[in-house]
Simulated assay, not measured.
Amino acid sequence: MRTRPVAWAPAEPTEPDADLAERAAGLADLMRGRRAVVLTGAGVSTGSGIPDYRGPQSPQRTPMTYGQFVSDPEFRQRYWARNHVGWRHMERAEPNRTHEILAEWERAGRVVGVITQNVDMLHLKAGSRNVIDLHGNYGSVACISCTYTINRWAFDDRLSALNPRFRERVASRGAIEVAPDADALVGDTAGFAFPDCPACGGILKPAIVYFGENVPRPRVAAARALVDGADLVLAVGTSLTVQSGYQFIRQATGSGRPVAVVNRGTTRAHGLATLTIDGDCSEVLALVDTAL
Rank of each mutant, 00 (worst) to 15 (best):
S145N: 00
T116G: 01
L226D: 01
Q247R: 15
F166Y: 15
D231I: 02
P206M: 08
V119Q: 07
R92G: 04
P13C: 14
D156Q: 11
S58D: 07
I176H: 05
T266G: 13
A221K: 10
A291E: 11
A108N: 10
A225H: 14
T65I: 01
A199N: 13
P218K: 13
P198T: 11
G47Q: 01
A36T: 08
L162P: 14
A184L: 13
V288H: 00
A179I: 08
C146I: 08
R169H: 12
Q68W: 04
S45E: 09
F194D: 09
G191A: 13
L204W: 03
H270Y: 09
E106R: 04
G212S: 01
A286P: 01
G254V: 04
H135A: 14
E91C: 10
S48V: 13
W87D: 05
E177H: 13
E91M: 12
R173T: 12
G109A: 00
S172C: 14
T241W: 06
A235Y: 05
R268G: 02
S160W: 01
L122R: 05
V112E: 03
F69W: 01
A182H: 14
R97H: 04
W80M: 07
W8P: 05
L232Y: 01
W80V: 03
M1C: 07
V220S: 09
G127A: 12
R129V: 13
G67S: 07
Q251M: 08
V37C: 14
A42G: 15
V209L: 13
R152H: 05
P56Q: 06
L204M: 14
A207I: 01
V178I: 15
R23K: 15
D29G: 10
T46V: 15
R268S: 10
R217H: 14
P206G: 10
D280H: 00
V259P: 07
D280V: 00
N163P: 09
T189P: 05
Q251R: 06
T46S: 14
T267V: 08
A190K: 10
A108W: 15
A182W: 09
A235F: 02
N83H: 06
I50E: 07
R92M: 12
A28C: 11
D196M: 02
A252K: 03
G136A: 15
R2C: 11
A179C: 10
D19E: 12
V262T: 08
A21W: 12
V178H: 11
V44N: 12
R107V: 05
D280Q: 04
G47I: 01
M31E: 11
V141I: 15
G109I: 00
A126P: 05
L226N: 03
P95Q: 06
R219W: 10
C281W: 13
W8C: 11
D29L: 08
G229N: 11
